[in-house]
Each structure stands twice: as structure tokens, then as C-alpha cells.
Simulated assay, not measured.
Amino acid sequence: MSRHDEIRQEMLRRINDGEWPVGSDIPHEMVLTEEFGAARGTVRRALSTLVEQGLIERRKRAGSRVVGQTSQTSKLHIPLIREEIESRGHAYSYRLLEREVKPGLHGIGTRNGLLWVRCLHLADGAPFQLEHRTINLDTLPQAAEQPFRVTGPNEWLVREVPATRVITRISAAAAEAEIAEILAVPEHAPLLIVSRETFMGEAHLTEARLSHPAEQYQVTTLSI
């Protein structure tokens, strides 16, 4: 991990842990430069990334402060597949199938690449959800250090990353041979597909394609 990414990650931790609460002023660049023992340009680059992610705002002659995103994030709910399975009274288990860093695409992950993960979530030992996920390592370089052998990216992202915008699409598809084998359903069996993209400000975080045997999955919405 580059030095500015290390500094950015520590700043993000302070925001997430409340050490730098919403509305608080960020220490001056010179103070941060001395604290981190880094060049001012390196600290400025780390701050700029957080500005792009919508977590910090710069004010003329007034320094930088943590942006109040509470009204947005409180309305966002990205479900944990573990909780969904356990709420139905089933035992949850997880299996990592593949993990690989690949080149970026269409301007996303063009510097550091994309972390591509394929994993299986099971209910009482039976396949419940096949997750294909790409993580933008330009925005989330710390994800490259996560093996995802025991816990899937869904839980890590919900816990560690304050997404401010989510796009969800729901569709149906027939199971291709490889996916049918993984999900233990007949080839061409109906699947329900949930596609989800997450963003922090304007920065793209992840994209996931979640495949479920149609008879095992339901969608519930609440209007308020």
C-alpha cells in the first residue's frame, strides 16, 4: 500500500470510529504532515481522496471538516446475507471460490486494478447465494489485504465502508451450466439476480451480482 493510501486509511478509521466526528475540523495539513512524518503533498493527496469520496469538505480560509452524511447513510441499508439466512432459522456458512486482482475497466480501478471475488453463501449446508463481486482498488486499496477466506466481502464492506449511494437492480435468468452446478440446481433453472453498485460520494466502490435459486429468495420492501 502506498504511503498516501496508508494515511487515507487512518483518516477514514478516525472518521468511522468517531475520533473525527461529523462537523469537526480536520487538523491543518502541516499538523498532519508532522504527525504522519510524510511530505505535505502526500497528506494533501490523502485528504483529496476523502474529499472526492464525499467525507471531507474543504472551506476557503477555514480549513477542512468532516461532512455530515448522517441523513443519507441512516436511510441506506445494505443487507447482510448472514443475517438474512439466520433470520430464517438456518445455519449460515461461507465458501470462497475464487479471488483475483484484475486490470481496471472503463475508468474504474485503472490505477490499482479490481479485486474480483466469487464466493458462495449456504443455508444449512445448501447453496443459497452465489456472489460475484468486483471491488475498486483505487477507492478501496485496503481491500487488497483482505483474504476473504473466512468472511465474505459483503460483511467487510458493510462494516468498514460508509457507502452513501446504492443502485440495486433485480432481474431473472436461467442458470447456465457452471452456475447451476455451484447452486445445485438443474441447468436452465430459474434464478433471481440482484445486481448492486455502491458509491461513496461520486467514487465507485463495488459492483456485485448475487444469484439465488428462485424458489429460495424473496424481496421485501418497506415504504415510509
Rank of each mutant, 00 (worst) to 15 (best):
residue 23 G to T: 10
residue 24 S to L: 11
residue 24 S to E: 15
residue 26 I to N: 12
residue 26 I to E: 08
residue 26 I to F: 12
residue 27 P to G: 04
residue 29 E to V: 15
residue 29 E to R: 13
residue 32 L to H: 03
residue 34 E to Y: 07
residue 34 E to C: 07
residue 35 E to Q: 11
residue 35 E to G: 00
residue 35 E to C: 01
residue 37 G to R: 08
residue 39 A to K: 09
residue 39 A to Y: 07
residue 41 G to K: 08
residue 41 G to Q: 11
residue 44 R to M: 10
residue 45 R to Q: 11
residue 46 A to G: 13
residue 47 L to A: 08
residue 47 L to H: 06
residue 47 L to M: 07
residue 47 L to Y: 04
residue 47 L to N: 07
residue 50 L to E: 05
residue 51 V to I: 10
residue 52 E to C: 08
residue 52 E to T: 13
residue 53 Q to H: 12
residue 54 G to A: 03
residue 54 G to P: 01
residue 55 L to S: 11
residue 55 L to N: 10
residue 56 I to L: 01
residue 56 I to V: 13
residue 56 I to H: 01
residue 56 I to R: 01
residue 58 R to H: 14
residue 59 R to Y: 10
residue 60 K to E: 15
residue 60 K to Q: 15
residue 61 R to I: 05
residue 61 R to N: 13
residue 62 A to Y: 15
residue 65 R to Y: 12
residue 66 V to Q: 04
residue 68 G to A: 14
residue 68 G to P: 09
residue 69 Q to W: 09
residue 70 T to W: 12
residue 73 T to S: 09
residue 75 K to S: 14
residue 76 L to K: 04
residue 76 L to Q: 08
residue 77 H to N: 11
residue 77 H to R: 14
residue 77 H to D: 14
residue 77 H to A: 13
residue 79 P to K: 06
residue 79 P to G: 05
residue 81 I to Y: 15
residue 81 I to F: 14
residue 81 I to C: 11
residue 82 R to P: 01
residue 82 R to G: 02
residue 84 E to Q: 07
residue 86 E to L: 07
residue 86 E to R: 14
residue 86 E to H: 09
residue 87 S to C: 04
residue 87 S to M: 06
residue 88 R to H: 08
residue 89 G to M: 02
residue 91 A to S: 09
residue 92 Y to C: 07
residue 92 Y to V: 06
residue 93 S to M: 05
residue 93 S to L: 03
residue 94 Y to E: 00
residue 94 Y to N: 06
residue 99 R to P: 03
residue 99 R to T: 04
residue 99 R to V: 03
residue 100 E to Y: 03
residue 100 E to N: 13
residue 101 V to A: 05
residue 101 V to P: 03
residue 101 V to Q: 10
residue 102 K to Y: 04
residue 102 K to N: 07
residue 102 K to V: 15
residue 102 K to G: 02
residue 102 K to R: 11
residue 103 P to Q: 06
residue 103 P to L: 00
residue 103 P to D: 07
residue 104 G to C: 04
residue 104 G to A: 00
residue 105 L to H: 13
residue 105 L to Q: 13
residue 106 H to L: 08
residue 106 H to A: 07
residue 107 G to F: 01
residue 107 G to L: 00
residue 107 G to I: 00
residue 107 G to V: 01
residue 107 G to P: 00
residue 107 G to N: 01
residue 108 I to M: 03
residue 109 G to R: 01
residue 110 T to Q: 12
residue 111 R to D: 12
residue 112 N to M: 12
residue 112 N to K: 15
residue 113 G to N: 05
residue 113 G to F: 06
residue 114 L to C: 02
residue 115 L to K: 02
residue 116 W to H: 14
residue 117 V to K: 00
residue 117 V to H: 00
residue 118 R to L: 01
residue 118 R to T: 03
residue 118 R to P: 02
residue 119 C to A: 07
residue 119 C to Q: 05
residue 119 C to I: 04
residue 119 C to V: 05
residue 121 H to K: 05
residue 121 H to M: 07
residue 125 G to R: 04
residue 125 G to L: 04
residue 125 G to C: 05
residue 125 G to N: 03
